[in-house]
């Protein structure tokens, strides 16, 4: 039987096949980013490009670096705002006993069902009225809000692991809730909070639909720019290849760093890994 430390002899080749199936398409785009327009679609294909050819990247970034900066500002700002709002709420929902606590937690979770498309037009009108349309502020505010249900719900599962006795001991020493939160709960749940923040970061980094609604020129994010390389008349493949590689770097790094927490993160704690 193929158990224990000696897997079936076909297991490793099969595993390699699976990994190739998932990596090869991405690798093909990565290789394309080092090819000229002619090389991208040459037949027969040019398998290995000249890696010193970086014109696509220099052309892309010289014209669009502003939008990459937008993306970074929006993503970091939204992640920070989302955590500042969500962590105290999650802590409160775990530690305070009050009537309607369960209902409030369920209500927060249920707002995740809200499809972004149902908020696009109202948010457009609101931000247009207050003059924040096409600013990074609008996207920071919106992305932070849309990730609150996720951040609260998953953070709650981490705050629940803080031992009761620790909190009671702090209370007996006369600590206020604010002190318990900042001096006891946050340090004890550091790694969990980092995981939550990373997810919020990636969700915000990947978002397209609301960015299409809320930005027109100045505040465009990188995904909006990438999607604009596909036009009705032609598709700028060399730009798409280079921008896709840049866009994929943060998700790839974070996926490799926190793969242990991906299942519990994406199922909002419903499945432990």
């Amino acid at each position: 039987m193929n158990r224990g430390t000696h897997p079936h002899r076909l297991a490793l080749p099969a595993g390699i096949l699976v990994a190739v199936a998932f990596v090869a398409p991405m690798a093909w785009m990565f290789l394309a980013s080092f090819k000229s327009i002619e090389g991208i679609f040459s037949l027969p294909p040019r398998w290995i490009p000249d890696f010193t050819y970086v014109d696509n990247y220099t052309k892309l970034l010289s014209q669009n670096w502003v939008f990459l900066v937008n993306s970074i500002i929006v993503t970091l700002g939204a992640t920070l705002l989302c955590m500042v709002l969500s962590l105290p709420a999650a802590f409160g929902l775990v530690n305070f006993k009050f009537r309607g606590r369960e209902f409030l937690a369920d209500w927060i979770l249920s707002t995740r069902m809200m499809p972004p498309i149902a908020a696009g037009v109202p948010l457009y009108i609101i931000f247009n009225t207050i003059g924040l349309l096409d600013t990074v502020w609008a996207l920071i505010v919106v992305y932070a809000g849309f990730n609150i249900p996720f951040a609260v719900w998953v953070s709650m599962s981490f705050f629940r692991r803080v031992p009761r006795e620790t909190i009671e001991a702090a209370m007996l020493e006369g600590c206020s809730w604010a002190q318990i939160f900042t001096k006891v709960a946050l340090p004890l749940t550091r790694s969990g909070i980092a995981t939550v923040a990373t997810f919020v970061f990636i969700f915000a980094w990947n978002e397209l639909l609301l960015a299409l609604f809320l930005t027109t020129r100045a505040a465009k994010t990188f995904p909006v720019v990438i999607s604009s390389f596909v036009t009705n008349s032609m598709t700028f493949w060399e730009m798409i290849a280079a921008s896709s590689v840049i866009q994929a770097i943060p998700p790839i790094i974070f996926t490799l760093l926190m793969q242990r927490h991906i299942v519990s993160g994406l199922t909002m704690g419903a499945v432990k890994d």
Binding site: F22, N206, I226, P251
Partner: peptide
């Protein structure tokens, strides 16, 4: 390596 696709930006 196999789990990389799911976190990558869908438009990519």
């Amino acid at each position: 390596l196999s789990i990389l696709p799911m976190m990558i930006t869908p438009i990519c």
